[in-house]
Design a binder for these strands. Structure first.
Length: 359
DNA sequence: TATCCTTGATAAT
DNA sequence: CCAGGCATTATCAAGGATA
């Protein structure tokens, strides 16, 4: 008896949320943008299918998207808190149908759909979930069902939007072998280019590379994963409460600069946000990093790990200030964007949990 | 030798 | 696919530091 895993993916999520509160957007191309303080600067976060027809895609600079747009196209600034609210409602409903859920992002989750009636039972459940999300919230999603995480993810991508795709054991090979290797989850443009140079186009091409070759090309974790994925294998378990290992916030500066006076206010602003966030999570942290993106778009980081947890905002401020000094003493290229990240989390003791627990 | 830390690379949206 | 010029968040891996 093997498991049955589903991947639920909310369709063009941010755009769909906006269409929900403003139905007059229906049928029009909609692009959700993340703007910066600078004129005309920013990128597309999500676009609906009408906008995708115009080749407006996520990650694309706003200016380019505007060139591709037509008179009908609507650009809306991202409203994360609103999307988060809807996301919470979604997964509340999903949890009425499925006990074991691993949420991977604001709009995606793996569901354990193992049951007595096999794939038929899972399909039935998925249909119910889709029905309820549509009925209760007016949202559509795409669901993929298969024997492991990776295949369910591939399946969910197969029929979008509003899809339901099932890959049973005996269909695995025919489903994946003709797919492009770049369609594998976690295999992005860089890896794709490398594979292309090796003459690898499809997943069956990928199968001709040995595990050793792949590890040499991509490192042990990625290499082994690609090796297994190309054979339909994925041993990753479904993890119910996946805990964040870091949180970071970034912003674009008003102008490129190497002047500490011009950078510090932004850092303080970010530190405060991050500090609030981490408190809300009831976590403590030891490592603080400053992330710098230059006007040449290189990313540089400076980190500092404290001996004990950082417990006040003042402490955090002084650490980031020092990191900035350190960076500016060696910097040559002006800074465009700046970010603050905290990591090396520890539980906030005193609240919950004892240090030792007997099994 | 094993683990931690820093930093850069990569991916997804 | 590639190039060009563009935001944010997160994870992973390599190699150095440290004990």
């Amino acid at each position: 008896m093997q498991g049955i895993v589903a991947l639920l993916d909310l369709d063009y999520f941010y755009a769909q949320c906006e269409m929900l509160r403003n139905p007059s957007l229906k049928g029009k191309p909609v692009a959700i943008v993340i703007k910066t303080v600078r004129e005309n600067s920013g990128v597309i976060a999500t676009s609906n299918y009408e906008a995708r027809k115009l080749k407006i895609r996520s990650g694309m600079p706003i200016l380019l998207a505007k060139k591709l747009s037509n008179e009908e196209t609507i650009f809306i600034e991202a409203d994360k808190p609103y999307y988060k609210e809807i996301s919470e409602k979604v997964f509340e409903i999903v949890s009425m149908f499925c006990e074991k859920i691993e949420q991977v992002s604001i709009d995606e989750a793996y569901l354990d759909l193992a049951n007595e009636k096999g794939f038929d039972g899972a399909e039935e459940k998925a249909k119910k979930i889709k029905e309820f999300l549509k009925g209760e919230l007016g949202l559509t999603c795409s669901i993929g069902i298969s024997v492991n995480k990776f295949l369910s993810k591939m399946a969910s991508d197969e029929n979008k939007p509003n899809g339901l795709t099932i890959i049973k054991q005996n269909e695995i090979d025919s489903f994946i072998s003709n797919k492009k290797s770049s369609e594998l989850p976690g295999l992005g443009p860089k890896a794709s280019k490398l594979l292309h140079e090796k003459g690898v186009e499809t997943i069956s091409d990928l199968k001709t590379l040995s595990e050793m070759e792949l590890v040499q090309l991509f490192g042990s974790a990625k290499g082994k994963q690609y090796y297994n994925f190309s054979r339909g294998i994925d041993e990753r378990e479904l993890k119910e409460n996946r805990e964040k290992k870091q949180i970071s916030r970034m912003i674009t500066l008003k102008k490129d600069t190497l002047n500490s006076e011009e950078i510090l206010p932004s850092i303080k602003f970010l530190s405060e946000i991050v500090f609030k966030e981490i408190k809300k999570m009831q976590k403590s942290f030891k490592t603080t990093s400053l992330i710098i993106i230059t006007n040449k778009f290189e990313t540089l980081t400076k980190s500092h790990t404290s001996q004990t947890i950082v417990s006040t905002l003042d402490e955090l401020n002084s650490i980031t200030e020092n990191l900035l000094k350190e960076f500016l003493s060696e910097a040559i290229t002006p800074v465009r964007r700046i970010g603050v990240r905290v990591s090396s989390f520890e539980e906030n003791y005193g609240y919950q949990k004892k240090l030792f627990d007997f099994k």
